[in-house]
Amino acid sequence: MHISGNTIFIPGSTSGIGLALALELRARGNTVIVGGRRAELLERIAAEHPGIHTVQIDTTDPGSIADAAKRVLAAHPDLNVLVTMAGVMRVEDWRDPASFLDSAEETVITNVLGPIRLIAAFVEHLRERPDATIMTVSSGLAFAPLKATPSYNASKAAIHMLSESIRLQFAGTSVKVVELVPPSVRTALLPGHEDNEHAMPLDAYVAEAVGLIEAQPDAKEILVERVKFLRYGEARGDYDQVVSTLNAADPHGK
């Protein structure tokens, strides 16, 4: 993916990593469309950040995805990058089925079915572009589990393998598949996580990630230095130590 000159749609980017990434990519000379569920929040983003386009979308709703795709492509026929940013993270206790089933289903619908449906809605258009990118968003937790968030870990592992698989299918086409792999970042993904001293500051994460996109336009994975501890634990042979260290530092662990 080239760092500038793109038209980029980022659903699920009204806060956190998504919004910070959208603003940084806009500053790098891209046309950026931010997607989210709340109309009032989209209006505020458009007012506070001139040049950012917005579209209302609920990535848990197939009809909303289809409608948003039509509106985005009608307004931006040169769209060539889709970033499947939307996601949720929930603390779960799988020792009590009554406490985790709804959460697990919501997580899979948002984190797995959402990206699949988004890709399905845009893939025919992207295949017609001379230089297109599908950017998926997994997590360091796709490679080492956080005890408190089983469904989130599993959903991000699914996104990693989905990315690996569809990259093989798109080989030889104009469509690149790039996987963004964040570490723990100070956002509101979990309550109080904005102040988690073990998490990477948001601005620092986005700056490093965008720098990697610029320096490595053909990269398959965008891995900031901090996430490599999780990403390569099994390859290094210290997976058990990685899992132990990760969960010892988790403020949600019980």
Rank of each mutant, 00 (worst) to 15 (best):
A121N: 09
E197R: 14
Y152L: 10
R129P: 12
A188C: 00
E105N: 15
V185N: 09
A148G: 06
A104P: 00
I166E: 07
S99F: 11
L212K: 11
N153T: 01
S103N: 10
A215K: 11
M135A: 13
S174H: 14
I119Y: 10
R129A: 14
L202A: 00
D195M: 07
L126G: 09
K147Y: 14
S174P: 02
A171S: 11
G211P: 02
I134L: 11
P97M: 03
R127C: 12
E221T: 05
A207K: 13
R117C: 02
L162M: 15
Y205E: 00
H160P: 00
K176I: 08
N111E: 11
V123G: 09
A121M: 03
R186W: 04
S174G: 09
S184V: 13
H160N: 15
A154W: 12
P201Q: 04
S165Y: 02
K147P: 00
T187C: 07
A199D: 13
L146M: 11
I222C: 00
K156C: 04
K147A: 11
P191C: 06
V206L: 07
A148S: 15
M135N: 02
I213T: 06
A209E: 02
I109W: 02
L190S: 12
K156Q: 07
E128Y: 02
D131N: 04
A204L: 09
T133I: 10
A171H: 10
I222M: 08
A209T: 03
I119C: 06
I116P: 04
K176A: 15
Q169R: 14
Q216V: 07
S155C: 11
E208S: 12
A171G: 08
N196Q: 05
L180S: 07
I213S: 01
L212R: 14
E194M: 13
A158P: 01
E128D: 12
F170N: 01
H125W: 08
P201G: 12
D218I: 09
S174A: 14
L190I: 00
D195G: 03
A98C: 09
V108K: 05
P115W: 14
T133Y: 01
R117N: 13
N111F: 07
N196R: 04
S165H: 07
A209N: 01
A104I: 05
L101H: 12
R127Q: 04
V181K: 09
I116V: 14
T173E: 09
H193D: 06
I166P: 05
R117V: 03
A132D: 03
D195S: 15
E214R: 14
E197M: 10
F143H: 13
T136Y: 08
P183S: 05
A157G: 11
V108E: 11
E106S: 14
R167E: 13
S163H: 05
F100G: 03
H193N: 15
R127P: 00
F170M: 14
K220T: 15
A171R: 12
I116L: 13
P115D: 11
